[in-house]
Simulated assay, not measured.
Amino acid sequence: MNRIKYNSILLSLTLFMLACGKKTEPSTESAEVASTQEMSGNTVTLSTEQAEQATIQTGTFTLRPLSDYLDVNAELVLGKEHTALVSAFTEGIISELRIRNNSNVAKGGVLAVLRKPDLLDLQQQYLENKDRMVFLETEYQRYKALKENDATATKNFQKAEADWRAAQTSGKLLAAKLRQYQIDPAKLTPDNLRTELLITSPVAGVVTRVDASLGQALNLGDPICEVSNLAYLHPVLYVFEKNLNQVKAGQKVHLKFPGGNEQVFNAHIDYLERSVDAERKTVRVHARFDHTSAASNQQMAKGGFLNARIALAEAGLLPALPEEAVIQEQGGYFIFYQEKKEARSITFRRVPVKRGPANDGYVAVEPLETLPQGAAIVLKGAYYVSANGGVSAEE
C-alpha cells in the first residue's frame, strides 16, 4: 500500500513539474528517443507505439486446477496383432500390383495378382479324378450285385471298392488344395480353368510398405507388402526406473509433436512392461489415446516421436498465468508487470518466479519478489518486452 501511495505522489509531482515547465515542441532528437525502448536494471521502457504494435495484454493471476507432471519421450507404436506382413503363399509371378504406399485397403481387398501356370496341372488332376470316380462307382455297384453268387466277383468287388474309396480320398485332397488357391471345386469345369491367384489383405488398414515389384518372380514366403491398422496406433512412453514409482495405470498423458503445432493429444496409461528396454535403459509404458484424440490420429505415423507429459498427483487450485507470460532466460524464469504508464511510454519491471505444474496452456507461478497490489502482469507479449529491452540484472 505504501508503495502505491509513493508511486501516486511521484506521478503527481512529475505532472506538476511538467505543467510548470516551458511548453515547447519536442525536438526531432527527443522524439526519436521517446519512440525507442530504454533499459535500466530490471525495467524495460517501451513507447506506446511499440506496446500497441506488440498487442501487449495485461492481467492478473487466475486459480487453476493444476497437477505435477513428469516429462518423458514417447514413440508411436502399432502392435503386431494389428500389422499384417503379406507374403506369397506359393510360387508365381506378379502380373498385377494394385497397391502403393499409403493406400487404404479393406479386409479381403485384392493387393496383387499372382500368375501360376502350373496351377493347370492341379485342376487337370482334379477333373480327371472326378470323371474316373463315375466309372469306379459303376464298377463298384456292378460287382456288389454279383458277389453273392460268384467267388471271382467277390474278389473283383473288393478291388473295385478299394479303387473307388481311393478316388474319393484323392478327390477330397485335390479339392482342399484347390480351395487353398481360391478355386471352388464345385464350380470348376474345363471351360473356366485359372492360372492367376488373388493376394488379399487379412486386415483392414493402410499399406505402410511395398516389397514386391510388377513382374517379379516370387518363392513361397517372399514378402509382398505390409498392411497396418493405424486405428490401433498408440504411444509408448519411455520412463526411467527411478521414476517408475510415480507412474501407474490410469494416469492422464498429454502429448505433442516436437517442433510442430501446439495441438495436444490426450491419452491415459494402459499398462507398464516388466522389463527394461536394453537400448534406452528405460521401461516401456503403454498408453491409449482418448476418444477425442483417436479421431485425430490420421496425421500420425508409426514410429513417430512425441513429447509426453504424465500428470501425477493433483496439486489443487493454484495461482496461474498463461505459459507465454513466463519467459526463460539466464537460467531462470521471469514475468513482467506494468510499473508505470505515461502518455508516450510504458515501463515494465521484470520479476523472477518459480514455475509449478502446468496444464492446458497455464502454469502455476510463485513470484520470488513481492508484487504491488493489483499489479498488471504482462499475459501476452512478455517475450517481446524482454527481447526489446535487453534486460540485465541490476547492479
Rank of each mutant, 00 (worst) to 15 (best):
E366R: 12
T347P: 03
K242I: 03
V227N: 01
A295L: 01
N261V: 02
A375H: 09
Y337N: 02
M300D: 14
Y143L: 01
S40H: 12
C20M: 08
S275W: 15
G259C: 04
V351M: 02
P223S: 08
I56F: 10
F157Q: 00
R194C: 10
K281S: 15
H82E: 09
N243R: 03
T282H: 14
R3Y: 13
G108S: 06
F289Q: 04
S293L: 05
G303H: 07
K177E: 05
A151I: 00
M1V: 12
V203N: 07
A167I: 04
Q141V: 02
E25A: 06
E52P: 08
G304Q: 03
I199F: 11
F305Y: 15
V72D: 13
F289N: 00
I9K: 14
H286L: 01
L272Y: 15
M300Q: 05
G259K: 01
R3E: 13
G332W: 07
L18A: 07
Q180A: 10
A204K: 09
D71C: 02
A376S: 09
A217N: 09
D290T: 11
K80H: 09
M133K: 01
L230S: 05
Q246T: 10
L272I: 08
H234A: 07
E161F: 10
V44C: 05
G108F: 03
L321V: 07
L244Q: 01
E324Q: 14
G381A: 05
T48S: 10
F348H: 08
K22Y: 12
G390I: 02
I346K: 02
Q338R: 11
K187V: 04
K187F: 09
V239N: 13
I310G: 13
S345R: 00
A175P: 04
E148D: 14
A186W: 14
E262Q: 15
L46P: 01
G260T: 03
S275I: 04
L318E: 13
R100Q: 11
E329W: 15
P352I: 02
E366V: 06
Q330G: 11
A308T: 01
K256I: 05
Q328M: 10
L10A: 09
D270I: 03
N243S: 06
T24E: 11
E32L: 00
Q338G: 07
G356Q: 03
D118V: 11
